[in-house]
């Protein structure tokens, strides 16, 4: 009953549309729009509450209480923050490239939404079950770089431009180990489909078969989301706020929320690739598959926050050197060993 609550409500909608005799292509399109709207809602609500979670986790780690005034346990704090930001004036710097400056915050949610469309949130719960799966994820994720760079450049501010340049350097470098670490898993499963990858972990999660790849993935994912210890892009003590320096009001809020959407995204991928996705651990199937998926994702998000509030920021040259001299060779060695292992195991 609980297991199929989303699938069956969608089926009910489909039947309803068939009953009122909507033409099939129109009905399919409508279903897709509903699915995507649901996903957009999921992303926005999560981004909003993850900000709250971040503040509570940081407070816990630093021995503070955190937000506790607005609503019970301060639960409405971030909602009020966003309401405040909406009501603020949007300031456009006189020397800014106006069109790009306004376009960047509008575009920033496009890659996360496009990627979440293929995520299997539970058994048979992917909005679009794509064969390309992981490859599509990589392709879409690479677009965020351009959008953040656009924000930095169009602000026409030295700090913003420096931040934009750092974004490109950092995100392009860490894309390499991120992609290479996924290849180990893909060799094992022989499929790019995310559902296929999850089902291949029925017996054992890939974190146990691919521990090196999982570690590389987690480090590279931290860098891809521009979070401490890799938050050089917006290092407050060096370049104010990087590409987002000139943004106020809702533009700032969009970038701020997009960071959490991206954290959610890399957690979702980590869950899918290494932690068995929606599969229940120890065969505890009394809880629905979508519950397990979300539960694992939040544990991953918590680990990302934990790292953020524990480690200091590292230097730019250390950051780049670490990606190219340590992570990339390690990931390539991992691919080689995985291939060799699979060959020996199969023959």
């Amino acid at each position: 009953m609980l297991e199929n609550i989303f699938v069956s409500s969608l089926n009910w909608l489909k039947n309803l549309m068939a009953a009122v005799e909507l033409p099939a292509p129109l009905a399919d399109m409508l279903i897709l729009v509903i699915k995507l709207a649901a996903i957009l809602g999921f992303i926005l609500i999560n981004a909003l509450w993850l900000v709250y979670m971040e503040r509570k986790v940081s407070a816990f780690i630093q021995g503070r209480i955190g937000p506790n005034r607005v609503g019970p346990f301060g639960l409405l704090q971030t909602t009020m923050d966003v309401l405040k930001l909406i009501s603020k004036e949007i300031i456009i710097p006189a020397a800014a490239d106006k069109k790009l400056f306004l376009l960047a915050p509008l575009m920033i949610f496009v890659p996360p939404l496009a990627i979440f469309a293929i995520v299997p949130f539970g058994k048979g719960m992917a909005a679009i079950d794509l064969n390309l799966g992981v490859y599509y994820f990589v392709a879409m994720a690479s677009l965020s770089t351009v959008i953040i760079w656009m924000a930095g450049w169009s602000s026409n501010n030295k700090y913003a431009l420096l931040g934009g340049m750092r974004v490109v350097a950092q995100m392009v470098s860490y894309e390499m180990p991120l992609i290479l670490s996924m290849i180990g898993v893909i060799i094992l499963t022989g499929t790019l489909n995310m559902n296929g990858i999850i089902q291949a972990q029925e017996k054992v999660w890939f974190i146990f078969l691919q521990p090196v790849a999982a570690t590389i993935y987690l480090i590279a994912a931290l860098a891809e989301t521009n979070r401490t210890p890799f938050d050089l892009v917006e290092g407050e003590s060096e370049i104010i706020s990087g590409p987002f320096t000139e943004y106020s009001g809702m533009g700032f809020a969009f970038f701020f929320l997009a960071e959490y959407a991206n954290v959610l995204l890399v957690s979702v991928m980590a869950t899918t690739l290494f932690f068995g996705g929606w599969l229940a651990p120890f065969g505890w199937t009394f809880l629905p598959s979508w519950f397990w998926f979300i539960f694992k994702v939040y544990i991953m998000v918590f680990i990302f926050m934990w790292v953020r509030w524990t480690f200091p920021r590292i230097r730019v040259d250390q950051l780049m050197g670490f990606a190219w001299k340590v992570l990339v060779p390690l990931a390539i060695a991992n691919i080689f060993l995985t291939g060799l292992g699979k060959y020996l195991f199969l023959s």
């Binding site: 677009l143 351009v146 760079w149 450049w153 340049m165």
Partner: peptide, 9 residues
Amino acid sequence: AGGVCIMLV
């Protein structure tokens, strides 16, 4: 499309 940012820089 993803590599365009390198060209931009």
